[in-house]
Computed example of a mutant assay.
Amino acid sequence: MFWASYLLAALAVILAWPVPVMLSKARWTARAPGAALLLWQAIALAGGLSMIGAMLTWGLVPLGDNLLAGLRGLAALIFDNNPADSGLDPVHVFALSAALLLTVHLVFTLLLTYLRIRKQRNRHRDLLNLLSSPAEHSPATLVISHPAPVAYCLPGGEGSVTVLSEGLLELLSPAELDAVMTHERAHLAQRHDLLLLAFAAWRTALPWLPTSQLAQRAVSELTEMLADDAALHTARRETLIRAIAVVASGERPAGTADPAGAGLPGGAESDALSTAHRLRRLLTPQPALSTAAQYLVALVALLLLSVPTILLIAPGLAG
C-alpha cells in the first residue's frame, strides 16, 4: 500500500494537469463528441478517486497492508480508543483527515450545486409562468414576448420545457424552427443537464484544477455538438447552420447559459467561442471517428477508472 499511495498521487497529478490540457486541444473530439464526453467523465472520476485514494492509502499504511486491512485497523483503533499502539504519526493522521475532508467537500459541493441550480430553475420557471404562453401545437414549448432570437431548454423532469422567443419565431423558417426544436429536445432527452451539473460542481469544488476549468467548457461544447448531430438527423446542414447563427445573435435570459442552468466561466465570450467551433464543424464537416477508434477511447476511459480502483484494493501493493 506504500507504493500504491505514490502511484495514486502520480496518477492524480497527471489527470489534473497534462491530460485535460491535451484533451482540450485535441481535434478528434469534434468527430466523436459522445466518446469525448465519456473520456472527460473518466478523467474527472479517476482524478478525484486518485486524489482521495493517495491520501487515504498513505494514511492507512501503519494499519494494514491493503485498503480493507487498513480500514479494519482504523475502525478497531477508533472503537478501542487505543492510539498508542497504532503506529500512526501526525503525518498519517493529517493524510487521513485530508482524505476525509476532500471527500466531504466534493459531496457537499455537489449537493449545494444541485440545490442552487434547482432554485434558479424554479425561480426561472415561475417567471416563465407569468411572462410566457404555451406554443399553439406544443404545450411543452413556451413562447416569451421578446424581440431578440432566443431558444433554450429548461430541464425539470416531466415538467421540462423548451422556450422560444417571438423574435426567433419571426426570423426562422419552419424547417429552421424544427431544427432548433430538435436540438433543444436532444438536450432534454439525453439529460445533458445532469452531466453539466456534475462538472459545474467539480469546478466549484476545485476551481484551481485545469481538469475542472477546461472540462466544464469542453463538456458544454460537446453536448451542443451532440444536440447538433441529433438535429442533423431530420434537418439539412445549411438549415441548421442558419438556425444556429440566428439563435447565437440573441441573448439568453439570466441563468440559462446552458442546459444545466449553471452558467459557464467567460459568459458571452465562452458562448461565442463555442458557437464558432460548432459552426466551423458544420461548415467543414469531417468524417466521424471510426468505430474502432471510438471503442479504443471507451477502453481508455475504462482503464482510467480501473487503475485507481485496482491500486486501492490490490493486496499485493503493500510495498
Rank of each mutant, 00 (worst) to 15 (best):
W17A: 04
T275N: 02
S50T: 12
L71S: 06
L273S: 15
F94Q: 07
H183W: 03
A46V: 15
L304K: 09
F94S: 09
R191I: 08
R217W: 04
V143E: 00
S86K: 02
P149F: 00
L88F: 03
P20F: 12
A186S: 15
P62L: 03
V150R: 00
A272G: 12
S50A: 15
T109M: 08
I43F: 05
S5T: 10
L164G: 09
L67V: 13
A9D: 10
L264F: 01
V307F: 12
N66A: 13
F2D: 15
A135N: 02
S138G: 00
R31K: 07
R72W: 04
L169F: 02
S290K: 00
H187S: 08
T275S: 03
T256Y: 08
A227K: 02
D65T: 11
A99V: 07
G73E: 01
H146F: 03
S145G: 06
E184L: 01
L317C: 08
P90Y: 02
H277C: 11
L279A: 09
W3D: 14
V13D: 12
T234P: 00
V297S: 03
P265Y: 11
R191A: 08
I310E: 12
W28K: 09
N66P: 13
A318T: 14
A16R: 10
S249P: 10
L177N: 15
A218Y: 01
N122S: 05
R121Y: 06
G53C: 01
S97K: 02
P62D: 07
H105P: 06
L45A: 15
R191D: 05
T162N: 04
I78Q: 01
A262E: 15
M181P: 05
